[in-house]
């Protein structure tokens, strides 16, 4: 069963949203979705670019009230 997990990385200066996502993907199963909440615009741009580069799937980025939700699916 594919799972969905949320990492609330708002206000997380170190290690930050992308590093948290990288660590979480290592523990996830193929098909699992990970939602990262981030208040850092830089990582909101970095995450989809990195996800495409390493061959996972971008499900979507939504702007919320002062932060973003970035959803990624483990594809390999």
């Amino acid at each position: 069963m594919a799972e969905r997990q949320t990492i609330d990385a708002r206000g997380a200066f170190c290690p930050g949203p992308l590093m948290e996502l990288i660590a979480a993907l290592k523990l996830a199963q193929i098909g699992d979705e990970i939602e990262v909440l981030s208040s850092d615009k830089g990582s909101v741009n970095d995450i989809p670019a990195w996800v495409t580069k390493v061959g996972h799937a971008n499900v979507g980025t939504t702007e919320k009230d002062g932060y973003w939700s970035v959803v990624v699916k483990k594809a390999k």
Partner: peptide
């Protein structure tokens, strides 16, 4: 380094 800069702390 895993992300796009040399350290997690900007």
């Amino acid at each position: 380094y895993p992300i796009g800069r040399l350290h997690a702390l900007e």
